[in-house]
């Protein structure tokens, strides 16, 4: 009772309360399980592992807030990662133009997703699924093996430290804060919620619903491309299959964090905590020597447990 009244007082979404509680619980368990859990090295490790899932889920959050879904994230990540390392091919002068190009390509793919959804009236699940197949095919036509090479200094993006502080996680959290403020304080951000909550009311109140939808898919494409570039830096090379995992896994932190698939409710804060929950859990299971196979079982159970606690509007 007391906890809920505190949450109400500070206007905390109950979902965020639950997920934060779980993160805290896992962290406490972690300290008991292993001495090494609390070391700076391990905590940095957890933060660094969160970056790629965080970026991918951030884009997914925006799309889901409008009541859509993007299954092409994995395809964009694959293509972005292969193009980045294949086109740069060890030449450090090409780094900036290629990255800019790949990010623009991500935006373009998202723009096409959004446009097809809006103008053809086809369900986003089908549009983005089709797009994901197209992208996977294009990526595999481009290369079947990890292509090209990266200049050594490129690994700064993933492993860089500024005054001992890991660079990538800080940037990721900053991006989350910016997007959180954007969703709360700007009119476009509010429109994202309005479209997801009640598309008809949004249309009647003069919101250019179609453009809002196109915007969120473009943003999602951008973040997926960014994830692809980050993964190149982390692994040192592009990989035509690296993104497959993110196609459906980018959805887990979003829903665990309290954003509902029907749209209009939730936010990026919950997603960020959801990402930490999943990465923390994996870290703990690794400490306990539990293989990834059991981790899948646990991940599936977490989805079920989390969402059966939240109230969902019945839609897809």
């Amino acid at each position: 009772m007391k906890a809920t009244s505190i949450m109400k007082r500070f206007r905390i979404d109950p979902a965020i309360g639950i997920v934060s509680g779980l993160v805290l619980l896992l962290a406490i368990i972690g300290f008991f399980i292993s001495d090494r859990f609390g070391t700076i090295q391990n905590l940095t490790n957890i933060l660094e592992n969160s970056v790629s899932l965080g970026l991918a889920s951030l884009g997914q959050t925006l799309v889901i807030l409008t009541g859509g879904i993007d299954l092409s994230i994995g395809g964009v990540i694959n293509l972005a990662s292969c193009l980045t390392s294949g086109m740069i091919n060890g030449d450090s002068r090409l780094v900036v133009p290629v990255i800019v190009g790949v990010l623009l390509l991500g935006i373009l793919i998202g723009f096409i997703n959004g446009s097809l959804t809006v103008w053809l009236g086809v369900h986003p699940l089908i549009v983005t699924l089709g797009m994901s197949m197209v992208l996977q095919g294009v990526t595999l036509l481009y290369t079947l093996v990890p292509p090209g090479a990266m200049p050594l200094s490129f690994d700064f993006i993933a492993y860089g430290r500024i005054l001992g502080v890991p660079f990538a996680p800080v940037v990721m959290i900053l991006i989350f804060i910016i997007m959180g403020v954007f969703l709360r304080k700007t009119s476009l951000g509010r429109h994202v919620y309005a479209v997801g909550d009640n598309a008809e009311a949004a249309r009647l109140s003069g919101i250019r619903q179609n453009w809002v939808v196109i915007f969120v898919y473009s943003a999602c494409g951008f973040f997926a491309a960014l994830t692809g570039i980050y993964l190149v830096s982390r692994m040192g090379i592009g990989d035509p299959r690296v993104g497959e995992y993110y196609m459906l896994s980018s959805i887990t932190p979003v829903v665990v964090g309290g954003t509902i698939l029907a749209g209009g409710k939730g936010g990026v804060t919950g997603t960020l905590i959801g990402v930490f929950l999943i990465i923390l859990l994996r870290n703990l299971l690794n400490f306990m020597d539990i293989t990834s196979f059991y981790q899948w079982i646990i991940e599936g159970l977490i989805i079920i447990i989390a969402v059966s606690f939240y109230v969902e509007k019945r839609k897809l």
Partner: peptide, 17 residues
């Protein structure tokens, strides 16, 4: 009252595990 997308996504992952 879990949305079908999530319920079956979860069973998919659990079965895989």
């Amino acid at each position: 009252k879990v949305s079908p997308f999530l319920a079956t996504l979860a069973t998919m992952i659990v079965l895989q595990g």
